[in-house]
Design a binder for these strands. Structure first.
Lengths: 205, 205
DNA sequence: TAGATTGTTAATCGATTAACAATC
DNA sequence: TAGATTGTTAATCGATTAACAATC
């Protein structure tokens, strides 16, 4: 499945989650495309890759489409997330995720495990979740069946913690460290690299 | 210029900045491609869009290529950045950027202006830069000639602060709020949307 | 000179858009 | 039924890869 399609599906889902979907609100590919900034044909093609969700002449039933997309993206149930590295960024991410989950039951992500190596941080709670020592990662990841991890450690440590997370069963990683991670083919990595984004934007100045 | 090319240029530049470039180290498109995870042809094509930087039979002179790329990406001189929203994420970003700039003179970005609306935060210094009230944004952006801004405010406030930043002369925005921003055509927006990334990754679980 | 690698053109690949028959 | 909009096929567009003459 092309990565761009998955990205757009996530956009459609967010739009539908935010939209006010009264019981029988139908949404057309034209509307959804307008909101997402893509063509109606694009919307229909993207959705058609996963099934026939619409009714000719009417459009897509909003709530149904939202639920189908959540199912496709595996966010119809709560997704357990581990955050590795409780520096300022990691702690900010942990609080962000927990608060969104607490504030809106539809928000699927929940930080169930937090890790650091600093003894001063281990044991401290962040939004009700205790920070564990990195050495406890394999055990915690296995017992909580964590499949998705956020890496927010210094660049020099990123590959090593990634290796440990992957060995423990993690299948997808969001990496904030400015390092290209080497992982086995069954593991997916996305990069959230602030400096790279700033560099790209600087081109247009 | 295709956006993917600009993205790869930024990757090449980072690689060259990190590489140990002795005086006459030459780098081939094969090497650079290997490090960046793209084909040699891709590297040559990308670079050829901006000029002829290589020597046949030899490759690209590392330091020269690095400097050329920095020039193309407008990061051969320090780039002033404003950060709007000093919540946890905003503050973490401010510290990250300042520390990298302080630690490595080659790091081009510098947070020269920080903004929030919380009276408890205004006046507080973050890594030596005082937080200003949002109302001071137009004045500060103009006097510091800030062209690049980071938006790290709550979703509900993102469009409003963007409008003010754009009115003051900002040309490129890195938006951390999960909101599609509407901006005039001469303004570039990149999104750093953690929830969207997590949603995409969840697809592969 | 011989070997290597660029810059560039041509071939391939894949994604987007347009068009329209199917059908609600 | 008439009007609207889907699902899908065909046409277009653009980006990637392969190939090779130019040349250091």
């Amino acid at each position: 499945m092309p990565e761009v399609v998955v990205r757009r599906l996530a956009v459609y889902l967010r739009i539908l989650r935010e939209a006010d979907l009264s019981d029988n609100r139908f949404v057309s590919s034209a509307e959804l495309g307008e909101w997402a900034g893509v063509t109606p044909a694009q919307v229909r093609k993207d959705l058609a890759m996963f099934g026939e969700f619409g009714k000719q002449g009417v459009g897509y039933q909003g709530r149904n489409l939202r639920d189908e997309l959540a199912r496709i993206l595996n966010t119809d149930e709560t997704v357990a997330v581990a955050i590795i590295g409780m520096g300022e960024l990691g702690a900010a991410l942990a609080r962000y995720i927990q608060r969104r989950h607490a504030g809106n039951r539809e928000y699927p992500f929940r930080a169930v495990a937090l890790f650091d190596v600093d003894p001063a941080k281990v044991g401290v709670s962040v939004e009700g979740v205790a920070i564990d020592h990195l050495d406890a990662l394999p055990e915690r990841v296995r017992e909580q069946k964590v499949k998705l991890a956020v890496v927010s450690v210094p660049a020099a440590a990123a590959q090593a913690v990634t290796d440990r997370a992957v060995a423990a069963g993690v299948r997808a990683i969001l990496d904030f460290a400015p390092v290209k991670l080497r992982v086995p083919p069954h593991v997916r990595v996305h990069y959230a690299d602030v400096s790279l984004e700033l560099h790209q934007l600087a081109f247009y100045l």
